[in-house]
């Protein structure tokens, strides 16, 4: 292995042949640097306790071999305590899988497209909870599900007007669908309908569980790698949930602000203080406004140069 040339990782995340302008990944599997399956397994005691310190410097220097990336990420994201044993983790895993299926079932009961292997990209309810019969949704859901989505909503309504939280959730479902079909579309992985609907299901369940955040554009991009790396849908959900614990603040919204604005305002003041040159140059190009709202726009400008 030592001295062997670095291997590009593109073959692990295959790109559709018609997508010719996709940049090649800069990540390379470097023997002796990248955390390999062998090194990873060697970091566990026979009971399954992980000496994560042994692996971190490799991860830092050479990344993680794609074949073990999913399981390593589970630890890095904090799904499991490194010092737990195989048995303990297995128990937690099973419990979490059950929890996920219970939530998914709740969602399925409200809106049976969840878990059906299909998804929607047009709204099914109005803001006041009235059903919408969009021909597109009928088309998207007709086969495999006995009832059409408008029938589903009508059925829901037969128990009285929809609960506000149900309406809020249902209003996000088509937005999730619209983003799912635009997430990592260059990958062969997403040519499979089942992977698209997996992404949709996880985001729909997440939106149901985390009502403060629901679904916000950008979340599909964060969820996608989990699905690619972890075959089990529930495991992927929990990795995503862990990641969202750190990031959900960015997506929370009030009447007047998007969560990420707090970060941007901090970044703005740091820049103003320490990066006078950039600030001056931005000012001179009509771009700079001291208001925080414009800062996200300025960051695009900086990163694009």
């Amino acid at each position: 292995m030592w001295g062997a040339p670095a291997e590009p990782a593109d073959s692990y995340y295959e790109v559709r042949p018609e997508c010719t302008d996709v940049p090649k990944t800069r990540f390379k599997i470097k023997p002796g640097k990248t955390l390999s399956a062998r090194k990873w397994q060697a970091a566990f005691t026979p009971e399954g306790q992980l000496d994560i310190g042994k692996t971190l410097s490799r991860i830092h220097r050479g990344g993680i071999h794609p074949s073990i990336r999913g399981e390593v990420w589970e630890f890095l994201l904090g799904c499991y305590e490194p010092k737990s044993t195989f048995d303990e983790r297995e128990e937690i895993r099973q419990r979490r899988r059950l929890q996920y299926s219970a939530w998914k079932e709740e969602c399925h009961q409200i809106f049976p497209v969840v878990g059906s292997g299909k998804f929607i990209t047009a709204p099914v309810v109005t803001e006041d909870g009235q059903p919408i019969q969009d021909p597109l949704v009928l088309q998207e859901t007709n086969s495999g599900i006995s009832a059409s989505s408008s029938k589903m909503v009508k059925e829901l309504l037969s128990h009285g007007p929809l609960d506000k939280k149900v309406i809020q959730w249902m209003l996000t479902l088509h937005q999730i669908g619209l983003d799912v079909i635009r997430t990592d579309r260059t990958l062969v992985f997403y040519e499979k309908q089942e992977n698209l609907s997996k992404l949709w299901d996880i985001l729909a369940v997440y939106a149901w569980v985390d009502r403060d955040v629901g679904y916000c554009q950008g979340m599909s991009d964060l969820c996608s790698p989990m699905i690619i790396l972890l075959e089990n849908e529930a495991d992927a959900f929990w990795c995503f949930e862990r990641l969202m614990r750190r990031l959900r603040g960015n997506f929370r919204c009030t009447e007047s602000s998007v969560g990420v604005e707090t970060q941007l305002s901090n970044l703005a003041s740091i820049t103003q203080r320490h990066w006078a040159e950039v600030t001056i140059s931005l000012r001179s190009e009509c771009l700079w406004s001291c208001s925080v709202e414009n800062f996200h726009f300025v960051t695009h400008y900086i990163s694009g140069r």
Binding site: C19, L178, R182, T186, Q217, G218, D221, V258, V260
Partner: peptide
Amino acid sequence: ESKSTIGV
């Protein structure tokens, strides 16, 4: 294959 726009 364009992605959804985030922010502005």
